[in-house]
């Protein structure tokens, strides 16, 4: 708004720089967010950063009240995101438990349930209702689900013995065999 300039004068260089920096910054920001939205969940082949899942009492992992991914090195991890208010989760709850009971004696596979934005009483009622015995805990502050960029619940992530994601299941499993066949891919 340099209205008073009597002679023809351009936009001062520093103003131009500020404008372009602002514009490029804005576009870059939106572009990065857009690509984040488009890429969806973490992809198979990605190394999963370490995370800590606190556990509900009664659903501890080897007696500890929290579990760290890095402590599970050498084991295959099946990480299931669920919530008590989630109807489709109920479809697969029994299947997950059955698969867990199948693998539990071998000690090569760990099942983890991450309870996504839920209330503890309802979550416990849900776990009890479906007789779930594997380790379960709340995804505090949605930190883990944000790390995995989950789109919703249920979603299940299969992490191999080296901490690398190798399979993502969006939506409920249809059968125990489906779970077993995915686990079997990485079991010797």
């Amino acid at each position: 708004m340099t209205e008073t300039t009597p002679q023809k004068r351009g936009v001062p260089l520093w103003v131009q720089i500020v404008i372009w920096v602002f514009l490029v910054g804005l576009l870059a920001l939106v572009g990065v967010i857009l690509s984040k939205r488009q890429q969806g969940t973490v992809q198979p082949g990605d190394k999963i950063p370490d995370f800590t899942l606190p556990l509900f009492s009664g659903y501890e992992y080897e007696g500890k009240s929290e579990v760290k991914l890095s402590d599970l090195q050498g084991k295959l991890v099946v990480l299931n995101f669920w919530a008590s208010w989630c109807k489709p989760c109920e479809q697969e709850a029994a299947e997950l438990e059955e698969a867990w009971e199948f693998y539990e004696p071998g000690g090569e596979v760990v099942f983890l349930g991450a309870d996504y934005v839920d209330t503890e009483p309802e979550a416990r009622a849900y776990l009890k209702k479906f007789g779930i015995t594997y380790s379960n805990g709340p995804d505090m502050g949605t930190k883990i689900s944000q790390m995995f960029r989950i789109r919703g619940v249920p979603e299940t992530y299969f992490i191999d013995q080296n901490g690398v994601l190798y399979y993502v299941k969006i939506g409920p499993f249809l059968s125990v065999d489906e779970i077993k066949s995915i686990v079997a891919q990485k079991l010797p």
Binding site: T5, K8, R9, G10, V11
Partner: peptide
């Protein structure tokens, strides 16, 4: 920015 000078 290009036409700024002539918008007097």
């Amino acid at each position: 920015i290009w036409r700024w000078p002539i918008l007097r």
